[in-house]
Design a binder for these strands. Sequence first.
DNA 1: CATTAAAATACAATCGATTGTATTTTAATG
DNA 2: CATTAAAATACAATCGATTGTATTTTAATG
Lengths: 339, 339
Amino acid sequence: MDNTEITIHDIAEILGINSSTVSRALNNSSRVAQKTKDKILKKATELGYQRNHLASNLRKRKTFTIGVIVPRISRHFFSSAIAGIEETAFKAGYNVIICQSLESLEREKSIIDTLLANRVDGVLISISMETKNYDHLKGLKQRKIPFVFFDRHCDIAENSKVVIDDFNAAFTAVEHLIEKNSTNIAHFSGPQNLEIYKNRFKGYKAALEKHKIPFREELVVSSSLMEKDGAQNVQKILALPYKIDGLFCANDVVAIGAIQYLRKIKIRVPEDIAIVGFSNETISSVIEPALTTINQSGMQIGEAATNLLLAKISNENKKQIHETIIVKTNLIERKSTLR
Amino acid sequence: MDNTEITIHDIAEILGINSSTVSRALNNSSRVAQKTKDKILKKATELGYQRNHLASNLRKRKTFTIGVIVPRISRHFFSSAIAGIEETAFKAGYNVIICQSLESLEREKSIIDTLLANRVDGVLISISMETKNYDHLKGLKQRKIPFVFFDRHCDIAENSKVVIDDFNAAFTAVEHLIEKNSTNIAHFSGPQNLEIYKNRFKGYKAALEKHKIPFREELVVSSSLMEKDGAQNVQKILALPYKIDGLFCANDVVAIGAIQYLRKIKIRVPEDIAIVGFSNETISSVIEPALTTINQSGMQIGEAATNLLLAKISNENKKQIHETIIVKTNLIERKSTLR
DNA sequence: CATTAAAATACAATCGATTGTATTTTAATG
DNA sequence: CATTAAAATACAATCGATTGTATTTTAATG
C-alpha cells in the first residue's frame, strides 16, 4: 500500500515522541527545544512529509481560499487582474476560486452562494453590468466575510475598493481630444448603475466645462459597450446635426467597434474623428489606427485588491478597515488622435 | 456569538437523533427512512445549514480541487480554456487552482510541488515552451494523481490529452495559401520540443509536398512566437534569395507582429504576401488586414479536458484510461489571404 | 403472539492536524 | 542536594463530517 500518506503521527511514533510536539515543531513553535525540532524536521524531510491542509484548515477554521468574481475571464483587463490576484494570493498561501458572472446578476447571486458554501475567507468582486441591487452582497456582510471591490465597485456604505480615478482619467482623455482641436466631442458611455461609468461621464462633462464647450445630452450614448454597440452608437451620433470630430469611449472594445464601422463607411480616424478609448486592451495597440487610450494595469489592481483583502482577513473581527486604494493610470497617445 | 456554524451535531441534538443519521440523511442515503429524511432536511434548511467541505473532504480523503497549469492566463486562448475548465469543474463540484508557468520550466516545477502539497485530485496542464524534460511530471504519476494535457502536450507514454489535429489544421492552412497562388511559402515555427509546433511544421511540409512545391529549410524560422519575433523573422526571410509570397505562422501573435512590420516597410498584405495565422485570437479579426487563421475553441478544449480528467479521477485506481480527444478546428478566411 | 429478517438508527472510531492544560524534565539558586 | 521556576513534552479534546459495526425498531410470517 503506497497510499499511506505520512502524518505527524507517523513521525511521532518513529521518533518516540508525541504528535503534538511534532506539530509544534513543524510550525516552529517556541515551545519545542531546538534539538527536538532538528530531529523532527530531518525525519519529516526524510519521509517526504507534507502537511495536510484540509486537516489543518479544518482545525484552524479557515480555508485559506479567496473567491474572485469577474464579469468575464477572457476580457484582457480581467485576466491581467486575475494574474495579479493569483500571484499575490499564492505567495500568501491562499488559493483562489475564480468565477465569472458573464454580466448576469442571477449568476452573480448564485456564485456568492457557492462561495459561501465553500467557506471562502474573503471575496474579490468586480460587479456585473446588471447589478443594481446589492442585497446579495449583504449576505457576505452578515456572515462577516470580508470583501473588496476592484474596478467595478458599487456605492454602498463601509466598503473597501481598489479602483482607478475614473473621473480624472476621463478628464485627461477628453482634454487630450480638445487639445487635438476637437470641439464636438461625443461620449460612448456604459451602464449608469456602475460607478466607473458614472465617473467617466462626469470627467467628460467636467473637461468640456473647463474648456467652455457646451455639453449636449444627445452626444452621450449609453450601451453595454460591446463591439457591436460601437457601430450602432456611431450611427446614432452621425445622425445628429453636429459635425462630430472627437469621441471619448468608456472602454476600448466599443471604441474598436466604432473604428471598424467608421472605416467601413469611409470616415477617417483621426482626421475626421479623433478617438480615445479606455483600458488599454491588447487589441488597441494593434488596430489600425492604433487607439489612444487610458492605460490601467489590471495586474497592479489585482495585486492591490488582494493585499487589501488579505489585510482585512488577518484583521479578524477587530475594527474593520474601509479603505479605497486608487491605482494610477496614464494616457497612451497613439495614432487615433494623432493630428 | 454568531460565529457558531450550524453542524450536523446541532441538528441531531435538536431533533434528538444521532449525527450519523443526520449525515446519511443529508447525503440521501437509503439507510435513512424517508420520514426522518424529511424532518432532517426541513430543520437543516430552517437553520441554514451548509455542509463543511473541509471536514467532509478530510474524511473522504479527497479535496475536490483540480490544478490547472497554463503558460499565461492573459493569452486569449488560455483564458477561454480556463473559462471552459472552471465552468465544467464547478458543475461537478470541483474547485480549480489556476497557475501560470510564464513559459518557465522552473516555475512549472514549483507549481507542481505546490499543487501536490495542496493535494489536488487531478491536474490539467499545457506545458511551457521551456519544458523539454518531463521528470517533474513523473512525480504526478508516482503519486497516482491523474493529469491531462491540453493544447501543448508532450510525448510521454500512457498520457491523456485533449488536442487539436495540428498536422491537418496546418495542412489546410498551407493548402489555402497555395490555392491563393502562393508558391514561396515561409513558415514561422515554434519551439520544436513542443509537439504542437512539430506537427504544424509537418503539416506545412506535407502540403508543400502534395502540391509539388520544393521544401526549403531556410524558409522555416523558429522562435518563441512573440510579437517582436514577427518583425525579426520577417527580416530573416526577406533577406533570402526567394520572393516570399505566402507565410504560414504557428500562432496569431507572431503573425500580427509580422503584419505590423510589413506594413511599416510598405510590403502589402495580402497582395505581396498572404498570411495565415493559428489560434484565432481576438486581435486577429481586428487587425488591418484581418488575419486568416485556424480557429480553435479554447472553451471547448477546456471543457473536454476537464471532463476527461474528472473521468480519470472518478475511475480511481482501477484500469487507467489513456485517451486522446481531438477537438475540431476550422479555417477562418479573412483579408490577409484575400486575393 | 412468538420468531425472524429487514429496515432504521445509534455507537464509536476515524480523517490529520491543532491547542489548552497537565505533567515531566531541566536548569538555576541558595 | 533540596527547592523552585522555567522549559519541554505529553495528554486529551477538538475541528465537522463520514462510515463500519452494533443495536434497536419495524414488518412479515406461520
